[in-house]
Design a protein around this nucleic acid. Structure first.
Length: 657
RNA sequence: GCCAGCUUAGCUCAGCGGUAGAGCACUCGAUUCGUAAUCGAGCGGUCCCGAGUUCGAUCCUCGGAGCUGGCUCCA
């Protein structure tokens, strides 16, 4: 295998020193020559930025660095090895299981198996136990570089591996890795031995198509996670728990925000009054925002003659995601899967002059898309949802300014919700419409605007829509997860298909440019995301109930009722049970459970002095006595500024909710 | 759509081939009570739907719906 044995390699260590070793030297030997302690700590090495293990022959000169458990990248090696350990255990328990792929993934690993009987949760526990046993047996990961014929022989009973093998090019090194009884066709890198895999857990099983192709057989995938130490594993499991605690489906039920019902149908959201408050506040805010930014609000029908979607091309391209036609006196109508055609028709309702542009139409447009049953998920993936959709029709010269305005709009809005964000510029996909030159110019325009504003972004190569490039904003939520945020798309397609025109200063017709944009995207998805972002503890302006009034004894009911009225007059959403049915302790419990931002507790002392004892959600027993007038002002200010948190000492502890 | 699992009271969940349970919630009554569960009583079920097997099905089988975790998909 070693084709240039006479060559020497020069390795540059991080301290700048160099070593000269023969071609094909094992990194293990280089590391050992640096120090025995380092060899013990070594997980893998990095050569010119690429991770390889200690038993893969060196084939290039360059920057050489030893990776230990402290290096982030060493986790991938651990997890990939854990995947092999998993396969080792599965093969011991289920000798007939055929093996697919077993890579490391973010936070863990998986391995795919082809078995006659799918794994059960009980199997998982047994497999995990077997993995621990195999780890303790301290099997070294042995790399072997072989020729094709030998490899074919080794995997004679593993058709999936043979398929993979047949795809390897002639000039590629074919390697196998063995740990104890298990052998895999694998490029590596791997740990020195299985005993380094100590802190892991199998999480769940799932079906997965072989090669990710839904036309091929389904394999059984086992997911797991692995870490270098107990603390990291515990922290990860805690993170999963935290995500579960924030799950919008659970909180949506607990806080009475929304539901679904099988009589209504899967993927269709019913907004309850409390969820309705949140949505209405967002809509009111956004309406105010976009009016300020020069939009006009329009309304278009929910069902549309399907011929319109033939013109737009959606019926040809996206028929599978559209609900079927409704026969109305021989004409076929369909629920709209997007709002653009309607806005275009409004644009075309009269002749447009360059003096009219830009035209910005906005609509909270409810659209319906047929999503396959398996993909539905709470409010995040649904079949009917309301987009805060807008379309900007402008001259080519106006595009830059319009993009800038959109960036301002997005920045302002995301700030209000407390989302940091990143920007991706998605470029021309494979089967794109339009001239590559036009695409290049459009992508450059977008990039130039971002650069001119000093706004960081990354490219998502080939990630654009078929009709134009786009800017994708990714929101980062309170626990660091990324969410699909606003998108801005340039469209080269629809203006052509609909033959959009405006009359220019030269008195000749011209084709306008069309921008699609959403800010929240889908009300459903956005609110679902917000529930998780805030863990159900909404800032005052969004909270369905903003303050709960809690009299300690029936004596003070008149003062409590008067306070409720004062606050309601100020437009605040007040929770107060005039019937006085509940014990004050019950009310505190309920207000806490419902994550009401403020509790105004009134006893004899407060009633006599015209004050309340004010408590903020999560601040436990920290509270302050505040005059009623001051309270009203304070809440009004906090609400009107759409503050994310109270401005002062009542702020909760960092972990408080 | 595919693989697996799940569906029992409003919620969270036990349970069993022989007519169904707990806690919380809810309803009623009592309680003059200073910061997250006062006491007592009561109400509450098409055991997801349909068909089959069985003397008998919430439980077993088949079909369907919905949900969960993934896969595929996401204009």
């Amino acid at each position: 295998m070693i084709d240039r044995p006479s060559d020497e390699l020069t390795l540059t260590l991080p301290d700048g020193s160099t070593r000269t070793v023969p071609y094909g030297t094992l990194p293990r030997d280089v590391v050992a020559s640096i120090g025995a302690g380092l060899l013990r700590a070594a997980v893998a090495i990095e050569l010119n930025g690429a991770v390889q293990d200690l038993v893969t022959p060196l084939r290039d000169s360059g920057a050489f660095r030893v990776l230990t458990e402290k290096d982030e990248r060493s986790l991938d090696v651990l997890r990939h090895s854990a995947a092999h350990l998993l396969a080792t255990a599965v093969r011991r328990l289920h000798p007939k299981a055929a093996i697919g792929f077993g890579p490391s993934i973010e936070d863990g690993f998986y391995y795919d198996f082809e078995v006659t009987e799918p794994f059960t949760p009980e199997d998982l526990a047994k497999i995990e136990e077997e993995m621990r046993r195999a780890a303790n047996e301290k099997f070294p990961f042995v790399r072997d570089e072989v020729n094709r014929a030998t490899a074919q022989q080794r995997f004679i009973d593993d058709p999936l591996k043979l398929e993979r093998l047949s795809e390897l090019r002639e000039d590629e090194v074919i390697s196998t890795y063995t740990d104890g009884p298990f052998i895999d066709l694998c490029r590596g890198p791997h740990l020195p031995d299985t005993s380094r895999i100590k802190h892991f857990k199998l999480l769940h099983t799932a079906g997965a198509y072989w090669r990710g192709d839904e036309h091929r057989q389904m394999l059984q995938r086992i997911y797991g996670t692995a870490w270098w130490n107990k603390e990291d594993l515990a922290a990860y499991l805690h993170r999963i728990e935290e995500a579960k605690r924030r799950d919008h489906r659970t909180l949506g039920k607990e806080l009475d925000l929304f539901s679904t019902d099988q009589r209504v149908g899967a993927g269709l959201i019913l907004w309850h009054p409390r969820g309705g408050v949140i949505r209405r506040e967002i809509e009111d805010y956004e309406r105010e925002l976009i009016m300020r930014h020069g939009y006009d609000i329009v309304y278009t029908p929910h069902i549309v003659n399907e011929k319109l979607f033939e013109i737009s091309g959606h019926l040809q391209t996206f028929k599978e995601n559209m609900f079927g036609p409704i026969d109305v006196e021989g004409q076929f109508f369909r629920p709209k899967p997007m709002n653009c055609p309607g806005h275009i028709v409004i644009y075309q309702s009269r002749q447009r002059s360059y003096r009219d542009l830009p035209i910005r139409y906005a609509e909270f447009g409810t659209v319906y898309r047929y999503e396959r049953s398996g993909v539905l998920h709470g409010m995040l993936r649904v079949r009917g949802f309301t987009q805060d959709d807008a379309h900007v029709f402008c001259t080519p010269e106006q595009v830059t300014v319009e993009i800038e305005r959109l960036l301002d709009l997005v920045h302002e809005m995301l700030g209000v919700f407390g989302y940091p964000y990143t920007i991706e510029l998605a470029t021309r996909p494979e089967n794109a419409l339009g001239e590559p030159a036009v695409w290049d110019r459009a992508v450059r325009t977008l990039a130039d605007v971002l650069k001119a504003r000093g706004q960081a972004f990354t490219y998502d190569e080939g990630g654009g829509a078929f009709y134009g490039p786009k800017l994708d904003f990714k929101l980062i939520d309170a626990i660091g997860r990324k969410w699909q945020g606003p998108t801005v798309q340039l469209d080269f397609n629809l203006p052509e298909r609909f033959a959009l025109e405006y009359i220019g200063a030269d008195n000749a017709p011209h084709r306008p440019v069309m921008l699609h944009r959403v800010l929240v995207g889908s009300m459903e998805r956005f609110v679902g995301g917000l529930i998780e972002h805030y863990a159900g503890a909404f800032p005052l302006w969004l909270a369905p109930e903003q303050i709960s009034i809690i009299p300690i004894t029936p004596d003070v009911a008149p003062a409590a009722a008067a306070l409720a009225e004062r606050l309601a007059e100020a437009g605040l959403r007040v929770g107060y049970d005039a019937e006085n049915r509940e014990d004050y302790r019950e009310r505190i419990k309920t207000a806490s459970r419902m994550k009401v931002p403020y509790m105004a507790i009134i006893g004899k002392r407060e009633a006599e002095s015209g004050t309340v004892a004010l408590r903020f959600r999560g601040s436990e027993k920290k509270q302050e006595t505040i005059a009623v007038d001051a309270l009203v002002e304070r809440l009004r200010a906090e609400r009107d500024t759409r503050a994310l948190a109270p401005s002062d000492a009542l702020q909760p502890a960092a972990n408080g909710l």
